[in-house]
């Protein structure tokens, strides 16, 4: 096993272990996500047409808000004792460090979706159908896009003042295509009848993920260190 891969796995293990031991961080984010979901339901009349059509959007807004909070912690952990400098000194390609951090965030954001989704199903009266696999694919691809862009930007925002705000300001405009695609596909996936159309959104998600993953791996070298 190459030393780069070892480093990535070590970082991933360490981050997940820290998240698992200090559950309060993740739980707070999860609760924040659920809160957003609830607040949006109160914004609409429960029986209205607008709510029926906007279901998917509400779910994704809750996920987007909750995941930015998760992403914020990625490098906060490292800056506490200036551990980030030690990370930058690792004798491996920085792309591996990015990979470790990115996979950790991917796991956390996917978990967030998994936990928010049941509540979403209950509140919005969804039925589990054969389109479940489409939904899973969308969730995974969106989590990939969000955590890829998010991990890179979290590393960037770490050296700024007001890092939480800076991260959201940078991340939302860039990830708008992902969120639009996710909402469109989710609307298709939770419908019970009718053909599934708009497959091109899946292509868009794939293209976005591929471009930004490649860009992040190349560019992370410049982000880490002085």
């Amino acid at each position: 096993m190459s030393s780069g891969l070892q480093a990535a796995i070590a970082i991933l293990k360490k981050d997940l272990l820290l998240e698992f031991r200090g559950k309060e961080g993740f739980l707070s984010n999860l609760f924040f996500g659920l809160m957003v979901l609830l607040l949006f339901t109160f914004a609409f009349d429960p029986s209205s047409e607008a709510l029926r059509q906007g279901k998917a959007a509400i779910f994704w807004i809750a996920v987007a808000f909750a995941s930015v909070l998760t992403l914020n912690r990625t490098f906060q952990r490292e800056s506490a004792d200036r551990a980030i400098d030690a990370l930058a000194l690792l004798p491996v390609d920085p792309a591996w460090i990015f990979l470790g951090k990115f996979l950790g965030n991917l796991a956390l954001i996917t978990l967030l979706m998994l936990l928010i989704f049941p509540l979403f199903m209950v509140f919005f009266n969804l039925t589990v159908t054969s389109r479940f696999w489409l939904l899973s694919a969308v969730c995974l691809l969106t989590a990939l896009g969000l955590s890829c862009v998010g991990t890179l930007f979290a590393a960037m925002a770490e050296s700024s003042r007001l890092r939480e705000v800076v991260l959201s300001i940078m991340m939302y405009p860039i990830t708008i295509p992902v969120l639009i695609a996710a909402v469109q596909l989710t609307q298709q996936a939770i419908k019970l009848t009718g053909e599934i159309e708009n497959w091109h959104w899946l292509t868009l998600l794939l293209i976005f993920d591929a471009i930004f993953l490649a860009a992040a791996l190349v560019i992370f070298d410049y982000v880490l260190g002085e």
Partner: peptide
Amino acid sequence: KLSAVFGILG
């Protein structure tokens, strides 16, 4: 460096 990275990604 960071703003250059953001300029490119944007």
